[in-house]
């Protein structure tokens, strides 16, 4: 069976790095393609889906363009903007464009984004979307109707390893694996100790986990994340370091590098969110 490079890397047990790009707000693809091409040491690149509930170009097209450019994409799909029919049809389209990796998410609520008056769909949740992908890979759609040609994907999902109560978060993690998740990318990790605790349990399950590493640029940005981004919690000790640093971005790189160090010791890779500072990736990954 053909495998995506991401799947190969993880199967081979190599420490795997992914990064992400956001589709343009508009129709000019040059910047997103340039950013994706400039990543170094990165196996696959996530393409976000109206991230933070802000309307942008559909990720399916951007991921298809990355395939054409020889860059392996991870297509993110959320349940917020599409019902089960639209999701399935986009997933079939993804297969036709040569997209192999999927990251299947519930999605941030529309009230966080630039279209707060939009009706959020959530016809499926992330677990049910994973099951839908499973069905398609069996050659049938969600209602059991036969497909002409069977897609093959490497489906992934998200997990918030620092979320409490642990047991409540972990049951959903298990459900996602039972529903076909073959890899995980985590919500931004900031507390190495808690992440290690999560991995101690997750390792038993065996599905590879890439720790989400978000590059903090300043104390102000950290506070903004805490106030505005669901599921992201930057601890005060990091904010303090950023505040006291002569060059906050350098300090952010140092924090990210420390967290990558934690990831190297306990999980299968990292997913880097560098938000415009892709040039710092080699430093973040530096052992």
């Amino acid at each position: 069976m053909l495998m995506s490079r991401l799947q190969e890397e993880l199967a081979a047990g190599r420490f795997t790095v992914t990064a992400e790009v956001a589709p343009p707000k508009g129709i000019d693809l040059q910047n997103v393609l340039d950013v994706a091409a400039a990543f170094s040491g990165v196996t696959a690149v996530n393409v976000t889906d109206n991230q933070g509930a802000n309307m942008r170009m559909c990720p399916l097209v951007v991921a298809g363009k990355l395939v054409d450019a020889g860059i392996e994409p991870i297509l993110q799909l959320t349940c917020r903007d599409r019902n089960r029919m639209a999701l399935q049809s986009d997933i079939l389209g993804a297969a036709a464009l040569g997209i192999e990796n999927l990251l299947l998410l519930s999605g941030d609520h529309a009230r966080f984004g630039d279209h707060p008056e939009a009706r959020s769909v959530f016809d499926l949740d992330s677990v049910q979307l994973l099951q839908a992908v499973n069905d398609l890979q069996q050659g049938v759609d969600m209602v059991g109707r036969k497909l002409d040609g069977v897609p093959i994907f490497f489906p992934g999902a998200a997990v918030s390893p620092e979320s409490e109560p642990f047991e409540l978060m972990f049951q959903k993690f298990r459900k996602k694996i039972d529903s076909g998740a073959r890899f995980f990318q985590t919500q931004a990790v900031f507390d190495g100790g808690r992440f290690e605790q999560f991995m101690a349990e997750a390792r038993e399950v065996g599905t590879p986990v890439l720790a989400g590493i978000l590059l903090l640029k300043s104390a102000r940005m950290a506070r903004f994340l805490n106030d505005n981004i669901p599921g992201v919690r930057v601890p005060e000790k990091h904010i303090d370091r950023l505040e006291k640093a002569g060059n906050p971005l350098d300090e952010g790189v140092a924090i990210a590098r420390e967290l990558v160090g934690v990831a190297r010791s306990c999980c299968q890779g990292v997913h880097l969110m560098t938000l415009g500072h892709e040039d710092r990736i080699p430093e973040i990954l530096d052992n």
Binding site: H109, R111, F122, D125, S163, E164, M169, K175
Partner: peptide, 18 residues
């Protein structure tokens, strides 16, 4: 979000992201 299989990643300190 009307999710049927457990909380989303936005749950923080047992509160809703919205």
């Amino acid at each position: 979000k009307g999710l049927l299989n457990g909380p989303c990643g936005g749950m923080e300190e047992s509160k809703c992201e919205v």
